[in-house]
């Protein structure tokens, strides 16, 4: 025991600092199973697993930075961190401000959820909750329903449970997890296909990092490790298309 400690100390003292580049990875950490804070208080989820795998392949030294969804793009652009992996779908609007890597999850159908017994009509004429600045918020706004926006995913679910909204629209995997977590208070309704799949957000000027991430992504797509992670987190073979 003592010996092990001493050798560990020595290793720490004399270790040559890794020459890997440091990359700060922004995430919301509030959107399970994509990204969340686990019981130990660490960031966890599909985004984090994929990100860490890419970093190790690209020889990057990565640390995770939590940031509100609302300011997640401005703070990338301002240089507070270097990537966004936060269940963010590739969209044309976002692509104007930042750049995206190749996709790392195919488009996931978005799912409506509501209290049991809710009439399907509310989806086009009622009040529907969605998180601010998401593809779902954009979709609801066009759907004929009244959009109510919230800063966090959690609040969109609460809004439905509290009766503030008739239904909520979010990524399918998140909705399914919340239906399970709320113990049957919510049921899933229609699903809609929106968005271009998830991509890693990077600054437009950061072409070098984008290339490294894309190369690593291509590798884990080819060797099946991305598919493994997709199955691990989503338990859905149909999404493991790479």
């Amino acid at each position: 025991m003592k010996k092990a400690l001493i050798s560990a100390l020595a290793a720490g003292l004399f270790a040559v600092p890794a020459l890997a580049d440091t990359v700060r990875m922004g995430t919301e950490a509030a959107y399970p199973p994509y990204n969340f804070v686990n019981d130990n208080g660490d960031v966890d989820g599909f985004d984090i697993d994929v990100g860490n795998l890419l970093c190790s392949l690209a020889d990057l030294d990565c640390t995770w930075v939590k940031n509100d969804w609302d300011s997640i793009i401005p703070n990338l652009v301002a240089g507070n961190y270097d990537t966004i992996m936060a269940g963010m779908s590739i969209t044309a609007e976002r692509d104007e401000i930042i750049d995206f890597s190749e996709g790392y999850l195919p488009p996931d159908p978005s799912l409506y959820a509501a209290l049991e017994g809710t009439d399907a009509g509310v989806l086009t004429s009622g009040v529907v909750a969605a998180q601010t600045n998401t593809i779902q918020a954009g979709y609801v706004a066009e759907s004929g329903a009244t959009l109510v926006e919230f800063a966090t995913p959690d609040e969109t679910i609460s809004a439905v449970i509290n009766g503030e909204a008739d239904a909520v629209l979010a990524d399918g995997a998140y909705i399914q997890e919340q239906i399970e977590a709320t113990g049957g208070q919510l049921v899933s309704m229609d699903s809609v296909m929106i968005g271009g799949g998830l991509g890693i957000g990077v600054r437009e000027s950061d072409t070098e990092l984008k290339a490294k991430l894309n190369a690593a992504l291509a590798q884990i797509k080819k060797d099946g490790r991305l598919n493994d992670l997709i199955i691990k987190w989503f338990d859905d073979e149909s999404k493991a298309i790479y």
Binding site: A30, P32, P33, F36, V37, N38, D39, K66, N67, D68, S71, N75, T152, D154, I157, S158, I161, E177, Q178, E180, A181, T182, G183
Partner: peptide, 28 residues
């Protein structure tokens, strides 16, 4: 962006499904 007591209260209080070791409903 500093993880203060409000951040953690909101984070801890939110509904936790079976993914978490201590699942619980909305305890915010």
């Amino acid at each position: 962006g500093i993880e203060d007591i409000v951040y953690w209260a909101r984070e801890l209080g939110g509904t936790k499904g079976s993914r978490f070791a201590y699942p619980h409903p909305d305890w915010r």
